[in-house]
């Protein structure tokens, strides 16, 4: 899911940064409109740590393997904090583990951060008919988690297929990208279930933590 350095042309990397800046600005603006913007920073920090570490948990999906992303969970729980949190998590993953890269940080932030914001808006829909119960929270948590990873895989696929480097055999690379994208279908269920379990747990023990959504 993380696009490393040297895969995409410089113009695409630049466009990724150009698209990231206004989204960060909008997210920070939304955060500042809250009554107490500092209140949610601890939970944003903890979920950033979870996002940072979880990319090491690999799930074998033959013939490849995928890893958890948790962008849906971050979106559902953190709301607009999710995008800066993911950006910081991606920065540390790139610097420490070479998961992704610094030139592709903007593109990766779009690939994983925008679906997190989508997850936030999906999760908010649970309260459309009054205060959501446990089952409704679980269903919308599942939808938020699975849709986020599905959209991420879709964005990843479109960006990579559109910009296969000159000299490479396009057919072989395209087939490998499609295989990897299909491997994310089981991950949609895993992430959806995990997000549902966490949101239901928080709904029961600390409903205040879901106050953003």
């Amino acid at each position: 899911m993380h696009i490393p350095d040297g895969i995409l042309p410089a113009a695409v990397c630049g466009a990724g940064y150009a698209a990231t800046v206004p989204i960060v600005w909008y997210s920070v603006r939304k955060i500042n409109q809250e009554a107490n913007p500092r209140e949610s920073i601890p939970q944003a920090a903890i979920l950033t740590a979870a996002f940072f570490v979880v990319s090491w948990i690999h799930i074998p999906v033959p013939p490849t393997s995928v890893h958890l992303v948790l962008n849906g969970l971050l979106g559902a729980v953190l709301g607009y904090y999710a995008f800066p949190a993911i950006l910081i998590g991606l920065f540390f993953q790139a610097v420490m583990f070479q998961h992704g890269g610094l030139t592709t940080l903007g593109v990766n932030a779009i690939v994983m951060g925008v679906p997190a914001l989508l997850a936030y808006h999906i999760f908010r829909l649970r309260n459309i008919r009054g205060e959501a119960g446990r089952i409704t929270t679980g269903i919308f948590g599942f939808l938020a988690g699975s849709c986020a990873i599905g959209l991420s895989a879709g964005l990843f696929l479109v960006i990579l297929v559109s910009f296969i480097g000159a000299g490479f055999d396009v057919e072989i690379e395209r087939a490998a990208i499609y295989t990897l994208a299909v491997a994310h279908v089981p991950l949609m269920f895993i992430e959806g279930t995990f997000t549902a379990l966490v949101t239901v747990f928080l709904h029961r023990v600390r409903p205040r933590m879901l106050a953003h959504a």
Partner: peptide, 11 residues
């Protein structure tokens, strides 16, 4: 030497 597979790779 650059190696690439499904958007992952290194040089």
């Amino acid at each position: 030497v650059q190696v690439r597979q499904a958007g992952h790779g290194d040089m």
